[in-house]
Amino acid sequence: MVMIFGVPAPLLLGQILLGLINGAFYAMLSLGLAVIFGMLNIINFAHGSLFMTGAFVAWMLLHYAGIGFYPALVLVPLIVGALGVLLERTIIAPLYKIDPIYGLLLTFGVALVIEGLFRNGYGSAGLPYEIPPSLSGGAQLGFMFLPTYRGFVVLAAAIVCFATWAIIEKTRLGATLRAATENAPLVRAFGVNVPRMITFTFAGGVALAGFAGVLAAPIYTVNPDMGENFIIVVFAVVVIGGMGSILGSIVTGFALGVIQGLTSVFYPEGADMVIFLVMAFVLLVLPRGLFGKVA
């Protein structure tokens, strides 16, 4: 058997793959947080619970309406995005003029409400969601076994992240968006409906979380705690990367997933803690984060 650093190669590569999958979720979630933060100046604490909602909606579509995985990949982001529009219009919009910390407090409240409701409705035990037949099984690559679905998740996440980056950095819509982030009153003066743009930015950000939720449903059991397990790690990812750069948050997300995977090979007890330790280290040497701008 091939050994790398005294560890069997399949074990090491398997953990790196697991790390990439976690990293894919960190990347999608921190990307959504960064997009929302750029436009609304609010950190969305409810991001994790909307991710969890995405997984639950996928499960509900399958069990109550017989709608399968592929349609859910499109429908769930739309549903979660619609929920985002509702949230933004009703309770988040009144906060733009006050200290951003209140946005964090309010969305923390939203997270508690969503998690409490799902826990009442479905318990904490978790519901299984089958991998769609066309993606089950796997491929023997010679040096390791690659489950098809896991490969699919990494690929889908990479594509969606890249597409988001391209929309924001390379299209006219994205240019307007970035301009509104820099100077909203001026963009308004040019006749752009900035409030509507803000609403759709928020909806887009949480739709990403919903999409991630669908992808996560077959990997983790669908349960009310899955969001909170992710969100705090994602906050650390955001602090490490800084929120100045879209590409930065994608790269940081994937990289930290891999670091976590490697930690679970060499020191399993530290796997839960390593990202927070990286965060502490980054704060020491580069307080504004790897890709952060000032403040």
Partner: peptide
């Protein structure tokens, strides 16, 4: 009432901030 405590806490958070 179990998890309704969580829901109520969340609702109070939202109401208090707004």
């Amino acid at each position: 009432f179990g998890s309704w405590v969580t829901v109520a806490e969340g609702a109070i958070f939202i109401a208090a901030v707004l």
